[in-house]
């Protein structure tokens, strides 16, 4: 049986698959799903051949902009996105790490201006060091795997 059918199919909307289970709640929060009025189905600890276990989210009647979806790259760079229309997958895509990353990640430096002023954070993705992002304001570097979200 198709694994995805453990969570009901949607007619129109967005499916986000292969979310690492420990990142599910961050993905929910990044997309603001808690404030959504349309139907949202969340599968948690589903069996996955590739990942062992995974999570999956189906969101009815909501299509996200590239900018919204690329924010996911910070916490879950390997998710699969499917756009559904009339129960059919009309588009599949991967998320891409945005650079700069604006308004998503919290700076790890408590003395950074961004932690003390009502403003959006901004990080540049390091070209030289893989997985490292650098605060545009204070210069503090951190690993993208261990970031806290704003």
């Amino acid at each position: 049986m198709n694994q995805e059918l453990m969570v009901a199919a949607i007619e129109n909307g967005t499916v986000i698959d292969h979310i690492p289970c420990n990142k599910l709640f961050e993905v929910i929060s990044l997309l603001g799903l808690q404030a959504m009025t349309s139907t949202v189905m969340i599968g948690y600890n589903l069996a996955s051949g590739k990942m062992g276990s995974k999570s999956l989210i189906k969101i009815s009647d909501r299509f996200f902009s590239d900018e919204e979806l690329n924010r996911l790259a910070v916490v879950a760079p390997n998710v699969n996105l499917s756009i559904i229309r009339n129960f059919e997958v009309v588009e599949k895509r991967q998320v891409e790490m945005p650079s700069p990353i604006v308004g998503v990640v919290k700076c790890a430096n408590p003395k950074c201006i961004t932690n003390n002023e009502p403003m959006r954070t901004r990080f540049d993705v390091s070209e030289k060091k893989e997985g490292v992002i650098r605060c545009h304001y204070c210069g503090r570097e951190q690993l993208v795997d261990t970031v806290k979200l704003v």
Partner: peptide
């Protein structure tokens, strides 16, 4: 002059 890092850039 500011005690916070990145204040001048902002």
């Amino acid at each position: 002059r500011h005690y916070l890092e990145g204040a001048a850039l902002y």
